[in-house]
């Protein structure tokens, strides 16, 4: 038998077997009793979408976005601040209150010195020297949060924020006195470090001031900038 004959005979032999006529009837009967399953995906899709939006919104809210009322913002600041040392809250609160939420308009370069006041003359130049060039200065001003006055410089690349926050010490306020352990000592200046959520906090103190650098940068990068600018900033503050 040739190969083609053999193939044909094989097909004919197998195809010669027919299903009993009753099988088709039996199957049709069984099918009639059962509904086709429905894909409920089209009904679940809006619910899934709503759940996703809710999850994203919750996440954003948790991390400080979507806080549009003063009360919501205050509760966020309070919840975040609660997770850092008391003295770290001073700078962190102002950073979130002012730079994150309030977003004051850009300070024109010619207005920077005037905004800070003549006693802080030179501070902006020092900060600009040490903050990476891709983060240009956005604002330089004095602001008040919960009755406390701050000197506040912000830098941003449009995505990440960096704040240099300076506050005059209140009574008994000192990192050293509050037994905080410095992360390192740079040029004789103890440097303190903390962080919560996306905020990296580096700080040091002069005789009369608490100085904070708070940013969305990695903690080590934040600390590197702060240690670099700490000596000249401290020198400037010691003269006040």
């Amino acid at each position: 038998m040739s190969e083609s004959d053999y193939n044909r005979r094989l097909k004919d032999a197998v195809r010669g077997v027919e299903a009993p006529p009753s099988l088709e009837t039996k199957i049709r009967g069984a099918l009639a009793d059962r509904p086709v399953s429905r894909s409920w995906g089209w009904l679940l899709a809006p619910a899934a979408l709503a759940a996703t939006v809710f999850a994203i919104a919750t996440s954003f809210y948790h991390f400080g976005r979507l806080r549009y009322t003063p009360e919501a913002r205050e509760s966020y600041i309070a919840s975040v601040s609660a997770r850092v040392a008391t003295l770290m809250r001073v700078g962190l609160g102002d950073h979130i209150h002012c730079a994150v939420f309030a977003k004051p308009p850009k300070t024109p370069p010619e207005r920077i010195e005037a905004s800070l006041g003549k006693e802080y003359s030179g501070l902006a130049a020092i900060a600009e020297r040490y903050v990476p060039a891709e983060y240009p200065m956005m604002t330089a001003h004095r602001c008040t949060d919960h009755g406390r006055h701050f000197v506040h410089l912000t830098f941003t690349n449009g995505d990440r924020l960096i704040s240099l926050v300076i506050a005059r010490k209140g009574e008994g306020e000192s990192f050293e006195a509050q037994s905080l352990l410095p992360a390192m000592v740079q040029s004789g200046i103890p440097m303190y470090q903390s962080g919560v959520q996306r905020f990296a906090i580096s700080a040091f103190e002069s005789r009369d001031f608490l100085v904070y650098l708070i940013s969305d940068l990695p903690p080590e990068e934040n600390m590197r900038i702060m240690t670099a600018m700490a000596p000249p900033v401290k020198d400037l503050l010691e003269k006040l």
């Binding site: 077997v17 299903a19 099988l23 199957i27 059962r34 399953s37 894909s39």
Partner: peptide, 25 residues
């Protein structure tokens, strides 16, 4: 041909079409 039994083949063929109908969407 696979099962070697016509009775079993009938049952399996029916099962195939029932499963196909259930997941026809």
């Amino acid at each position: 041909r696979i099962l070697g039994q016509r009775e079993r083949a009938e049952d399996v063929a029916q099962e195939v079409f029932l499963r196909a109908w259930k997941s026809f969407d």
